[in-house]
């Protein structure tokens, strides 16, 4: 049994967001440093086939923030799910540096925790994020730092020795198709970020339900048949994506409240990495694993209702792998003098 390791989310910020932020800063925010709500999206991790070598290259999905992130209603790109967050822009680089980042991080973590504790379906809050920025409008440089808070589960979730395997081998094509189509109708027209699946009364057919219905939906389902599925932005064969972390934490929280909390918890996890039904000749890219939560030594219930907010992690590392902000230098794309040099 090894600890489940999650592939951290990374961010991709469209240059149009910086244009939108510039506009927002000048026209609306001015000197205000209040947080503003912001939306982003991510999709399933992909593998692309290299045309030259024929090998498959994993291409994880990133949390993409587009230019219309500040608008109240945004159209999601196809096959994507939305993630909500807050943006806090600082007026000076000194304030940006000196900011109490842990407090800001904790605020977002607290919101996720509140949602886990009290919301009937916390799905949309499980992938909340924080973005702090400093916009150097004169130099067209934007300093930014994302955080994707995820709660640390104690004890940690473990994966069976067999590791993560292809979902096709474990569940079979028919079952996957059934889960996929059922999930699509569950999420309107696209796959929801998280959902539950169990075998239905019809053989080889599956039913799905929102994550929030965990207790009722799985009430009469054997542990071995319980499937927790999520849209997986990771493309790594052995590491599921970051969003699963809070989903599993939510389930462990529910488990700790249930009368069976003294028993260990065991679940099947489906990492959905197919955004559409693959063709008849093409394999499914989704992964499948059986994870379990060992009992915490000394304590029968790892979490208690109304207890303190558990510790969370999730600051994005910069391009050098350090815990530090990133910078987008848009001078080559925005500075009139540099653009003039490009002109033919």
């Amino acid at each position: 049994m090894t600890v489940v390791q999650f592939n951290p989310l990374t961010s991709t910020v469209s240059p149009s967001l910086w244009h939108a932020l510039t506009k927002l800063k000048i026209d609306v925010l001015k000197l205000s440093q209040d947080t503003v709500p912001i939306s982003a999206s991510y999709s399933a991790g992909r593998t692309v086939t290299d045309r030259e070598t024929g090998t498959d290259v994993p291409l994880p999905s990133t949390l993409t923030v587009a230019g219309e992130a500040f608008e109240a209603t945004t159209t999601l790109p196809s096959h994507s799910v939305s993630a909500l967050g807050v943006l806090k822009n600082f007026n000076t680089i000194e304030e940006f540096k000196a900011a109490d980042k842990q407090a800001l991080f904790n605020d977002v973590a607290q919101e996720i925790w509140n949602s886990i504790k009290s919301s009937p379906d916390p799905s949309k809050d499980l992938s909340r994020f924080l973005l702090i920025t400093f916009a150097d409008l004169k130099k067209y440089k934007f300093y930014y730092w994302f955080a994707f808070p995820a709660f640390i589960s104690k004890p940690a979730w473990e994966i069976e020795e067999s590791g993560w395997q292809t979902a096709e081998d474990n569940l079979g094509r028919g079952a996957l198709e059934s889960i996929f189509t059922s999930a699509q109708s569950l999420g309107g027209s696209s796959t929801p970020a998280f959902f539950l699946a169990r075998p239905s009364s019809i053989p080889s057919e599956y039913e799905t339900a929102p994550l929030g219905q965990y207790a009722t939906f799985f009430a009469n389902t054997a542990q071995s048949s319980r499937i927790v599925a999520f849209l997986d932005p990771s493309a790594h064969p052995q590491h599921p994506g970051w969003p699963l972390r809070n989903a599993l934490f939510y389930i462990s929280y529910l488990h700790s409240l249930s009368p069976h909390s003294a028993q260990p918890l065991r679940l099947s996890v489906l990492c959905l990495r197919d955004s559409e039904l693959p063709g008849p000749e093409k394999p499914w890219k989704s992964r499948f694993g059986i994870v379990s939560l060992p009992l915490a030594p000394g304590a029968s219930a790892p979490l208690e209702e109304g207890g303190a907010r558990p510790a969370a992690v999730g600051w994005e590392k910069n391009t050098l792998g350090k815990l530090a902000p990133r910078m987008a230098d848009l001078a080559p794309m925005m500075d009139p003098t540099q653009l003039a040099d490009q002109a033919v």
């Binding site: 489940v4 390791q5 999650f6 790594h236 510790a311 992690v313 910069n318 530090a324 902000p325």
Partner: peptide, 22 residues
């Protein structure tokens, strides 16, 4: 080099086994 050296060591004190390698 333009990015001010802002690495924050103490930001994530909690050890985190469950994050995959960077």
């Amino acid at each position: 080099d333009d990015i001010p050296d802002m690495e924050e060591e103490g930001l994530e004190e909690a050890e985190d086994d469950a994050a995959a390698a960077p």
